[in-house]
Nucleic acid binder design. Structure first.
Lengths: 351, 351
DNA sequence: CCACTCTGTGGGATCGATTGCACAGCACCG
DNA sequence: CGGTGCTGTGCAATCGATCCCACAGAGTGG
């Protein structure tokens, strides 16, 4: 038999072809130890010639490292999440780790099953955008010595480190911008208070108002689900009122789509009749008419920093079987940035 | 030592706790063979009590199955791709397979590295949206006995099965719709001819025109990259011309964003001045003003069928090390569907 | 009562790598 | 010249499961 069928080439075969022992072949191919140049070349050429590919499963069994990282995420649709996922995957890959993707759809039962499964696969790390309903299981993962990084979730509610956007600051920045332009009638469309980001963005909104001695006007605040129709309805209602606001802060990515549709439908001119700021960037906002002022919550950086932090923890993990420090979870905040475009302007003088 | 530190419980320990041999414990926990009820219960309760989690790495080494499937994809941003990825992951998970996510960003070198890596991890299957530059490597994967399913890529250009959208038919459907409404000046904005989907959608566009004795008018056709700015520019140019079209077919998801922005900017009223059809659905199209007529290319089904086809191949794979049939790649077309909303109407009578 | 089948269980090889330990050979030093 | 240290290599144990084979004991038929 000559040609290489489905049966893979093993280290033994390489070693034999190179006329050395398995140990030596291993040493050459996984780097590490002292080997003479002549042997090194012999093994490398044999490996090359036979088309040898190391079996990571076997290697993983021995070294107790899978080179796999679990990514448990609620969805991929939200603009931030797919951006974060891409960046994460790339950064981890650069350091030799691969991503096991698990989409929970915010279902705690699915999330739980995934966590167990990842444990079975002996992942070297876990990055999770959690539902919040499985802290016990996550703690179990953490207790098994697997570093955990939470994304967009406070470390109070879960074991491990956290990487979060500065939601409150970002919202405050956006609303301050509107106030600085001279607006005093600022509306809010955002998510429910039950979610970290929903709560924080509202808090930022309120905080900004407070700096000029205002309070949120319930008639100008719409809080509801992260959906397009909700955004559309809310915008219709707010703008159709007797005394519509001169500015609008839309806190939620999905809802923003609805808002924009509604504004087109109502024929509201932006920024002449309404100044608009949206939280979270989208690829087409810069090209919209008018280009839209946004709060960039740093999705790229979120991914970047989460990967970095996880790798740090993996590297500093004790090789022995120590119970593992149970060190306090670290919270990393990613700064938000206001990107001023043309959808915001000074309010039209009341005639 | 009592508490279970990071050191995982092994099958040996479960067996000992249950007072049986490792073999028996294995039989109980992986189902299969005849075991007495009493023993079964003993083992199960021991496993439960000790919090035993099977080590898939060890199991994979022995059984030569990793329960991992590689997903190599150009990006996650495109609406179709993240939808496809979600569905794929879910379907594969239901059958016990996990997804190793690899985003290539259309870089052949990255793609190649990923393919090698997936080979090292001994994935049980591969689903790939390929760049087209690594057919040799993909063939190698296939030759290693790993089933391959191509997504959105013709099976001519790559080994393995293919699942594709009916791009040509979908485009034809859309343009026929415009023609049926009475339009005769139909513009085309789409991707370059070098990409399967770009070529096919253009072909569908031309085919529809041919049914009423027309040919594509070069002055009404814009072909370029899959970008927002390109769509915006193209729409500006087309609609700013002396004799603008009465209908527009936008073949590409990214470009469509640009088109919509441009139309708002120009103040073009849809559908009064321009009927608009877009290829590929987006979550907010139904809520836009007006709701947008689209060709739904069946992204969900693409994911669904790709997963299904891969699982079929995995199941029917010979357990022995046979070179593996080299069976002809099968092509599965997913039907496209026209969703008529309010962005298309009969053309305004020329005054 | 013997041969035979069938059920349930254990022993131990095996998957393919990594790695601790031993050791041969050589150089160097006092 | 004997001891010491260093380099390069091989042997064999090991990771944690699966599964082939052997075998004990119960049941069955002639």
């Amino acid at each position: 038999m000559i040609g290489g069928g489905p049966v893979a080439v093993t280290l033994d075969q390489v070693a034999e072809a190179a006329g050395v022992s398995k140990s030596t072949a291993s040493r050459v191919l996984s780097g590490s130890s002292r080997v003479s140049d002549r042997t090194k070349r012999a093994v490398q050429s044999a490996a090359e010639r036979l088309g040898y590919r190391p079996n990571r499963i076997a290697s993983g069994l021995r070294t107790r490292r899978s080179n796999l990282v679990g990514l448990v995420i609620t969805n991929l649709v939200n603009a931030s999440f797919h951006r974060i996922t891409e960046v994460l995957q790339q950064r981890l890959d650069e350091r030799g780790y691969q991503v096991l993707l698990c989409v929970t759809d915010s279902d705690p039962a699915r999330e739980r099953r995934y966590l167990d499964m990842l444990l079975d696969h002996r992942v070297d790390g876990l990055i999770i955008v959690g539902t919040g309903d499985n802290t016990a299981t996550v703690r179990q993962v953490s207790a098994a010595g697997i570093p955990v990084v939470n994304l967009m979730r406070s470390p109070d509610s879960a074991p491990g480190d956290s990487v979060m956007a500065a939601d409150r600051d970002g919202a405050e920045l956006a609303v301050r911008h509107l106030l600085d332009l001279g607006h005093r009638s600022v509306a809010f469309i955002g998510g429910p208070a039950g979610v970290d980001s929903g709560r924080d963005r509202y808090a930022g909104f309120a905080a900004a108002l407070a700096t000029v001695g205002l309070e949120p006007d319930p008639a100008l605040c719409a809080r509801g689900p992260f959906t397009v129709p909700f955004g559309a309805e809310a915008a219709m209602r707010l703008m159709g009122a007797h005394n519509p606001p001169t500015a609008l802060y839309s806190a939620n990515h999905e809802a923003t789509f609805g808002v924009l549709g509604a504004l087109v439908q109502l024929g509201v001119r932006v920024p002449e009749q309404l100044s608009l700021v949206c939280h979270e960037e989208a690829p087409w906002f810069p090209y919209w008419h008018p280009p839209i002022t946004v709060v960039d919550n740093g999705a790229r950086d979120l991914g970047e920093l989460a990967a970095e932090q996880l790798l740090r923890r993996i590297d500093s993990r004790p090789d022995n079987g120590e119970p593992g420090e149970e060190s306090v979870g670290r919270l990393i905040r990613v700064g938000s940035r206001l990107v001023v475009r043309d959808s915001t302007a000074v309010p039209r003088r009341p005639e």
